[in-house]
Nucleic acid binder design. Sequence first.
DNA 1: CTTGACCTTCCAGTGAATGGAAGCCTTAGG
DNA 2: CCTAAGGCTTCCATTCACTGGAAGGTCAAG
Lengths: 142, 142
Amino acid sequence: MNIGDVARASGLPAKTIRYYEDIGLVQPLRSANGYRSFRESDLHKLAFLGRARALGFTIEDCRSLLALYEDDTRESASVKRIAEDHLRRIDEKIAQLQSMRTTLADLVQSCAGDHRPDCPILNDLGAPAAGEGGASCHGASD
Amino acid sequence: MNIGDVARASGLPAKTIRYYEDIGLVQPLRSANGYRSFRESDLHKLAFLGRARALGFTIEDCRSLLALYEDDTRESASVKRIAEDHLRRIDEKIAQLQSMRTTLADLVQSCAGDHRPDCPILNDLGAPAAGEGGASCHGASD
DNA sequence: CTTGACCTTCCAGTGAATGGAAGCCTTAGG
DNA sequence: CCTAAGGCTTCCATTCACTGGAAGGTCAAG
């Protein structure tokens, strides 16, 4: 299979597949013409990677998961640990976003959104109201 | 004020403040020795930026918000539009993370996490169970 | 022989910083 | 006067996971 076939079959862009080869996640063979030649097992790996990435695992997590997947002496505890760590990171992210969301929704709600310049959103960003409802949300945004 | 003072006062790392100058968000003066010299108004802007970033606004959003902040002929509708768009993006992100979370929590819950190799998490990533609970979560992860 | 769809490599850019190296400036102490 | 510490400067590289694009080789159909 050439890269285009694999892209269609796995749902991953060809660019991404090349990138995954670059960083050593898959090692397709090469045909005489220099084209990548993917085996079934490569396709299977790529599908695995696609699903793991869709669940938000980092590339390094994916590398570990793939190694465990191919290791029949693995302990499921190792897999679970990675998944639990990731779950925790997701929960943190959700909490952070929800905190932003609360503050932001308040601000949006309080803004008239008309032709006049008065704006509680800008007021808050310029100098958060002491005590209640300031944009005092902590933590990075990404 | 030198950059260190402003960093302490605004809570932003000096590196970040230099970066904000680089991309034109603040324009501190320079002292004879080449050091950046921040006015009160610069500090105020940086505090504004810090709060806007903490709410997850992008740098480009911040640039627009800052321009509106300094424009007394603004219409609050312009501000509200930016905030509403951002709120929508946050909601999308939360929804996406929650969908991941649901699938992942199911998988984690179903994994024994012991010394044996059998692992529903890897099984699912390797070939999602048809019908129910596959890692069929769509959309990018960042 | 040409066209068009593939494929290749390499380089650059994304967002929003962050880390580090190499080197000037300033101030306090000896 | 010399030195050491700490602050400041610039510039370059790195992060993460791709993505876009240029320049060019390959292949099958007409």
